[in-house]
């Protein structure tokens, strides 16, 4: 099967050099394919009010081996739910539909249980997932023991830039950046082929955040598929090959990281461009209005209300995701 063929660990240069066309379409053998993923859950308000909240309303993306794909969405947009859906960790009050395939086959039931924690690894949002009573080295090794495992541990730690003394530190002695790297190391040592990293850098000072992200990049360069979920588009662009942009629970654009340049001319969706231009370094331009809840925009383009180019058709129907200029976009009139 083509899936098994690992991409050769790419050097930074050759990775960036790959044609944006090829990268954006995910030409590398897809390890993870998500199609039309929708997640909703029941929630209680006060007392007896109960409502269904649509969190994800259509997410399509794929992650190839050796590739780092970032899913960018504002906080509370359901990114964590996506991670949990892939890992089969959705709470009982959540309902999901759509297809999630790993290495070409549906990822569910028995197979998911078998792969989770081994080939599939989650780098969770909180460093509180580290066991406070275990030294970092033991955390990363999991159940592996013995001198061989030790030397592998040393190799992985040094690859992710963790000093040797870090092995003997307890979680409370680790900085945020180091704790992230320990989590990533654990994924690497566990033999993960697909790693989903949920918001690995919030509140981290720039240098530390870059280190944590670099560890993920290393993982991808070693042949893993990495899905990075973040609200920080700048952080994502620093390491990602491709970027999927989430708006109102839908993936609205899938672009190569290199498309984010200049004034955003190469971007396809007006929201992505607005997001790019709102960065402090790129104009700091706000956009009136707010993201609607997915259920408020069930029958129209979710961005129509804030879009400068919206036509009547944009308010009458929901555009489908389509291939456009080497990427994908959910828009009737893409640029």
């Amino acid at each position: 099967m083509a899936i098994g063929a690992k991409r050769v660990p790419a050097q930074e240069a050759s990775r960036r050099g790959a044609s944006s066309e090829e990268a954006a379409l995910g030409a590398a053998a897809p390890l993870l394919e998500i199609e039309g993923l929708r997640v909703s859950f029941l929630q209680y308000g006060r007392g007896l009010q109960r409502r269904t909240v649509q969190a994800l309303a259509g997410v399509d993306l794929s992650v190839g081996a050796g590739e780092l794909v970032a899913l960018v969405g504002s906080s509370g947009s359901g990114k964590s739910l996506l991670a949990h859906a892939v890992m089969g960790l959705l709470p009982d009050n959540a309902r999901s539909s759509g297809s999630i395939r790993y290495a070409g086959e549906p990822l569910d039931g028995e197979r998911l249980l078998r792969l989770r924690g081994k080939e599939l690894a989650l780098v969770p949002q909180g460093v509180t997932y580290l066991d406070p009573l275990l030294r970092a080295g033991e955390q990363a090794l999991g159940r592996q023991r013995g001198p061989q495992a030790r030397s592998r541990l040393r190799a992985v730690f040094s690859r992710f830039g963790l000093p040797e003394r870090a092995e003997r530190l307890y979680p409370h002695q680790l900085s945020g950046g180091m704790a992230r790297k320990v989590l990533v190391s654990a994924a690497a040592l566990g033999g993960a082929r697909l790693v989903v990293a949920d918001e690995p850098t919030p509140g981290m000072e720039a240098g530390k955040a870059a280190e944590a992200l670099q560890a993920l990049r290393e993982l991808a360069d070693g042949g893993c598929g990495v899905l990075l979920l973040t609200h920080d588009i700048e952080a994502a662009l620093r390491v990602a090959d491709r970027v999927a942009v989430l708006y109102a629970g839908e993936a609205v654009e899938l672009a190569a990281a290199s498309d984010f340049a200049g004034a955003g001319e190469r971007l396809r969706h007006p929201y992505t461009r607005a997001l790019w231009q709102a960065l402090p370094a790129n104009g700091f331009r706000p956009l009136p209005g707010v993201q609607p809840a997915p259920e408020e925009a069930a029958a129209s383009c979710a961005f129509a209300a804030r879009c400068g180019q919206a036509a009547p058709e944009c308010r009458a129907a929901k555009p489908a995701m389509r291939v456009w200029r080497g990427g994908q976009v959910r828009c009737f009139k893409p640029d």
């Binding site: 969405g73 504002s74 919030p202 402090p280 700091f284 706000p286």
Partner: peptide, 17 residues
Amino acid sequence: DEMTAMLDALTQAGIWR
């Protein structure tokens, strides 16, 4: 104190302005 660290770029720009 990190007033907009958890927000997306568009929201951040709007709030700060």
